[in-house]
Design a protein around this nucleic acid. Sequence first.
DNA 1: ATGAAAGCGCTAACAG
DNA 2: CTGTTAGCGCTTTCAT
Lengths: 351, 351
Amino acid sequence: MDSSRKKSTRVTILDVARESGVSYSTVSRALNGFDFVKGATRDKVLAAAEKLGYVANVQARSLAGGKTRIIGLLVPGLDNGYIGEIVRGVDEEIAKANYDLMLYTTRRRVGREAMYIDAISNGPSDGIILIVPLLEREYLTALREHHFPYVLVDQIDPQMHSPMVDATNWQGAYDATKYLIDLGHRRIGFITGLRAIQSALDRLDGYKAALADHGVRFDETLIAEGDFFTPGGYAAAQKLLKHKPRPTAVFASNDLMALGAMQAIRDQGLEIPEDISVLGFDDIPQASMVHPQLTTVRQPLEQMGRVAVSLLIEQIERPDNLERAARRVTLATRLIERESCAAVPTSDMKG
Amino acid sequence: MDSSRKKSTRVTILDVARESGVSYSTVSRALNGFDFVKGATRDKVLAAAEKLGYVANVQARSLAGGKTRIIGLLVPGLDNGYIGEIVRGVDEEIAKANYDLMLYTTRRRVGREAMYIDAISNGPSDGIILIVPLLEREYLTALREHHFPYVLVDQIDPQMHSPMVDATNWQGAYDATKYLIDLGHRRIGFITGLRAIQSALDRLDGYKAALADHGVRFDETLIAEGDFFTPGGYAAAQKLLKHKPRPTAVFASNDLMALGAMQAIRDQGLEIPEDISVLGFDDIPQASMVHPQLTTVRQPLEQMGRVAVSLLIEQIERPDNLERAARRVTLATRLIERESCAAVPTSDMKG
DNA sequence: ATGAAAGCGCTAACAG
DNA sequence: CTGTTAGCGCTTTCAT
């Protein structure tokens, strides 16, 4: 059979053993670094391996209980600047650590997610990074049961105390709201994210807190429900624009919705930021490419990806050290002032 | 040892065998579909597998000569809209075919690319898609030698007759140039891609051909060397803008460079498209997000990714059928008219 | 410090 | 049609 396409020609650990005149398992030890191997022997083996162009077979290694140096990454999809940035950070850090990357999209095998996670943890990955906003808890319990290393990105999981990395959502929203208030705005429309997502809640709370701290009355009718996607932002903004008197600023819980809001505002014949200011959250690449450029709260997405990788590798390579390892890393957000916010029109100055 | 984190709890083919009261290999056969298994037996096995929550171990299967249903994808990096679109298409099609995806970035292990490809082909993937502009030939010979399925995207390989998918680069550039000529432009600056890349050459040729076919004299000094990246486009445009008389249009060999060119033009205090038209190639997402929106030649990037997958799966699943299989698929480009091109200013009408 | 040997879970002949 | 039996290439005890 030709099914052995990946085998026939390949140089195995046995070839290296022959070439270097030592045994089978000594080669394995030498190749894997540590373990008691005489310096000379090791050098001999390494030289032979190099000469023969030996490359370890990941499958075999994994099957025999070793590591594959493959990290899994589960994301909803790639069609979203937000995810893309995190993925870049993940990829970079993975490369640096000399691991490889398996990319999983949740689109796959919908409806059988439990089994899906099971498949992943039964696949070649040594561990997995989850960037999945609405992850079911069963996922995590399955992972836990198998002692399979994982880390959550931008998603908390109060019950299980999972390792995770996120950003200062509350503070970011607070800062942004304060910024708007300092600009003179009093009627600040707020577009929420999905209520089921903790970061969405935190941002809303930050907004409310800033209002309260600066003597601006919270107005429930200035809150519009969003879903983190552009069309949702558009619809929410439309609703907000009907509010009388019209809000002088709109703060969207993420950039994608802010983009939708900008479109809705323009479609009403209004100018940004002259008539109405718009502020986003995330700082995805598009934020600086639209016109006017979007003022937004920057999440260090790429860095979040990087940190996630290091948290995961820590678990993979030092399973013993788990208790002392960092369980949660929260990175700072930062307001990026661009062009979509301005002082409130003087006609509106009374507040 | 705990190295067996992925094993201990797991239900194997053996458990399924016990549960369903048949043997080891019968389970394997039933699970793998075909092979002569009595309907009743198969159902029994499937039921048992389902009940036990059995998930195949990819490593073991691969080691034993089976398929992993993993497809490798090698790209330069993710920081490029062009690649991103292709990757999305790849991911989608892979999901549809029920495969998984390993993502490799060339950034890794630079300087040892030969060995890198070797590692990939020795990894879990059943085959690999290469979106690597300047791939060394050794890569391909190595793949060939191992009879490892692969397909090239947007990259030709005349010597080896590799399976590949690309777009009508020549025609796309021809159409774009003609469009500009029809708009009255006669001094059309052209920013090239990397000369080592065939598609860059084809685009240049398409440009020249359109000029020739429409009686516009080719002017070598209207050609500026680019590298497919934004800063290179910026620099090339700067050079072009010094040309006397100034070109009335600039055609960049890809959108990234067109974006750079737009910036250079604005930095000279010139208006797009009033003073000078700009045209790109690719239609990356950013093209429709900049202001003014970029008129460009659309490559069906996502579809290219999809086709690449199907070409690869064809090889993986029907290794016998190889000779008859499609070796090259070329998809049509299409001019997308947006806002960055206008008729030549009347003052320039003489040509 | 090194060799021998036992699997890891599965596929694929090979016999019935 | 189904059971038996070799390995796939490697890590890891267990001896030595």
